[in-house]
């Protein structure tokens, strides 16, 4: 009898300590985590010795996919009383699409519901002509559309001097930020970041830079990943 009893007790492992450890780890991960943002394409940024961190507010991120498609990602101020991200996006889309409608009077107007819906999307990048259609799509179709048929038209137009769609977006962003007294944050050098794959030809990035220059955004940053300095 005694033998059996001892055996029974030894099979139970006290999990309390284990639980303590896991809870600690969990807390650590929860506090340190910043969620990976869903992006239409994953790119590997080039290594650099630069140690400046990407700001996590008031940032316009330009994502250049390896196939040359360009997407935008807008982040407002952390202090939501200044300019919250969703308000920022709603105002930007309102202005940008308004500009597009001026040139194309036949284009359907954006409804308030659509604007509201758009303000929840972190990354966007479809031609204006497809914008209302894209907003109306269900979530999973939206991502697919962005990847396959997205991309803001960015080619520099030489012939007519009209701004291309990418420049319209930039203009709208600039106006919105200036109207909230944040113009300095945009033009100061830390407000615009270009994210491109290290294997991309430089010409893809150059087009973006040319566009930025046209809109007088001469100071910006390139997103890189950290490389140890060889000394």
């Amino acid at each position: 009898m005694g033998k059996v009893k001892i055996k029974k007790h030894s099979t139970i492992i006290d999990m309390t300590a284990m639980s303590d450890v896991t809870v600690l780890l969990l807390t650590f991960f929860m506090l340190t985590s910043t969620f990976l943002q869903k992006e239409p394409v994953q790119v590997v940024t080039p290594p650099s010795v630069s140690e400046t961190k990407v700001p996590d507010e008031k940032l316009v991120q330009i994502l250049v996919a390896p196939d040359g498609k360009v997407y935008l990602n807008l982040t407002g101020a952390r202090d939501s009383s200044v300019l919250a991200s969703d308000k920022f996006r709603a105002e930007v889309v309102n202005r940008a699409y308004g500009k597009y409608c001026e040139a194309h009077p036949k284009a359907p107007k954006l409804t308030a519901v659509q604007q509201q819906e758009f303000s929840k999307l972190t990354t966007f990048g479809v031609p204006f002509s497809k914008l209302p259609e894209w907003i109306e799509m269900p979530m999973e179709k939206r991502d697919e559309f962005l990847k396959n048929e997205g991309g803001i038209p960015i080619a520099m137009s030489i012939k007519d001097g009209q701004p291309n769609e990418f420049q319209i977006w930039l203009k709208a962003i600039k106006e919105v930020m200036q109207s909230h007294d944040l113009g300095k944050d945009l033009t100061g050098g830390q407000g615009v970041a270009i994210k491109a794959s290290q294997y991309s030809p430089y010409s893809l990035v150059q087009v973006v830079m040319d566009n930025l220059q046209t809109e007088r955004l001469n100071k910006f940053t390139l997103m890189t990943s950290l490389k140890a300095e060889e000394e």
């Binding site: 284990m18 400046t52 961190k53 830079m209 001469n218 940053t221 997103m223 890189t224 990943s225």
Partner: peptide
Amino acid sequence: VDMNMLLITFFMLCTTMLKSQTLDLVLPT
């Protein structure tokens, strides 16, 4: 413990520990 482990796995897979760095660039006007 099982549940915690699951949560930890979730957080580990969904987080970016390292923030991206940036390289400043100024172009002429």
